[in-house]
Amino acid sequence: MTEGVQTPSAFTPRIFSGIKPSGGLTLGNYLGAIQKFVAAQEAGTESIFCVVDLHAITVWQDPEDLRNATREVAAGYIASGIDPTKSILFNQSQVHEHAELAWIFNCVARVGWMNRMTQFKEKAGKNAEKQSLGLYAYPSLMAADILLYHATHVPVGEDQKQHVELTRDIAAKFNHDYKVDFFPITEPVIEGPAVRVMNLRDGSKKMSKSGESDMERINMLDDADKIAKKFKKAKTDPEPLPDTMDGLADRPEARNLVNIYASLSGQSSDAVIAEYAGAGWGKFKPALADLAVDKLAPISEEMRRLMDDPSEIDKILAHGAEQARAIAAPILKRTYEIVGMVR
């Protein structure tokens, strides 16, 4: 949990977060999410981590690809340091309470709130009328994911902050409408220099699983040679590194690489700039490649080992789902009672 964040005394401090299994895991998932999940776990905060496979099907997914991607995300969690004996780890579709609470929240959320969601606009583009209802409404499912566990904090990237704000709005409206203090007003936790990891070929775009070129991203299953090659060939500019981060304001590719180095090394971006001020890319990029290989190659190796035995992953997810339901079921039951359902 972030230092200084106060949790209402009525609610136990608890973190929830999830990753969607569409495509493969990238460095963006690791630095923007999983690395922070591991830190929260080790800090002793009660933590629930989810592979949000119900979110994945808001756009078409090949069933076999979806199963493989779900296991890959789980393998990434475990290989990066999420310990199923310390945290709860499961896939969303094994806990039916998520979908049930989402329907309640569909009836709490307002259409105007959904119309303001920028991610739907970005993903739907000019073809909004042809998109699934699930893609439009999935922010209320995300709110259900969080509030089903009375999560008080959610580690998110900057691009997901709007969804946590919607979760807060839904919780507040539910509490107000039913005159209860039942759902917490969840806090987003956004920390670290690389909360938004950018494309290695275009620093103005977020690193994406669906980019046209594999050289745009670091995949968490990339081996050491691929990791090193991609960083050494990452787009930069002809100027050396400045002595302050202000000097990178109009240099998106350079700023991205400095932020990635900072996140991988556990330093601030200012500290990295101080160390490499005046250095050219012939010095910085090999250093970044070596750091990334040292940090990421053991994770990718362990992920491949886990993926070779999917039954081990499936057992971990099934056990986690049982643990998750033990928390979720009573909260959903009480929600139904508050709403007025005969139980």
Rank of each mutant, 00 (worst) to 15 (best):
A75C: 09
D246V: 05
S9Y: 01
S140V: 15
R67C: 06
K173D: 15
R168V: 12
N259Y: 03
W60R: 05
L221F: 04
T186S: 10
H98P: 07
P188M: 07
V59Q: 15
N256Y: 09
I48C: 04
I19D: 14
D223H: 09
L66R: 07
A109W: 00
E72V: 00
E239V: 11
D65N: 05
K130R: 13
E191L: 13
E46C: 02
V164H: 03
G112Y: 05
K230E: 08
W113F: 04
K230P: 12
K130E: 02
A33T: 06
A287D: 15
L141C: 14
D237F: 07
F90R: 02
G266K: 08
L332V: 03
A144F: 03
Q323C: 13
S93T: 09
G23M: 13
V195E: 12
D308N: 13
S140D: 11
H153R: 11
A297V: 10
L248D: 12
N199E: 02
F16A: 06
L200V: 09
G192Q: 09
G28C: 04
M114W: 06
P63S: 02
L148F: 09
F11M: 09
P84W: 10
W60N: 02
A79F: 09
M307W: 10
V51Y: 13
G340F: 00
E165I: 09
M220V: 13
G247M: 04
K295L: 06
P252I: 12
S263A: 15
E253Y: 00
V108T: 15
V38S: 05
M117D: 01
G192Y: 08
Q267E: 15
K226N: 14
S93D: 14
V5C: 00
I299V: 15
F16Q: 01
S80V: 08
E129L: 11
E275C: 02
N29T: 02
E322Q: 03
R343V: 09
V51G: 04
T118Q: 09
D270V: 01
H150R: 15
K333H: 14
E97R: 00
W103R: 07
D223K: 05
T26K: 08
V293G: 07
D294P: 00
G24E: 14
P240L: 08
I48N: 06
K209G: 06
R116K: 14
E301H: 12
A194M: 11
G134T: 12
D65Q: 15
A274N: 10
Q162H: 08
S269V: 09
A271K: 11
V5W: 02
K315W: 03
D214T: 12
G4M: 11
E42W: 00
D250Y: 01
D65R: 13
C50T: 11
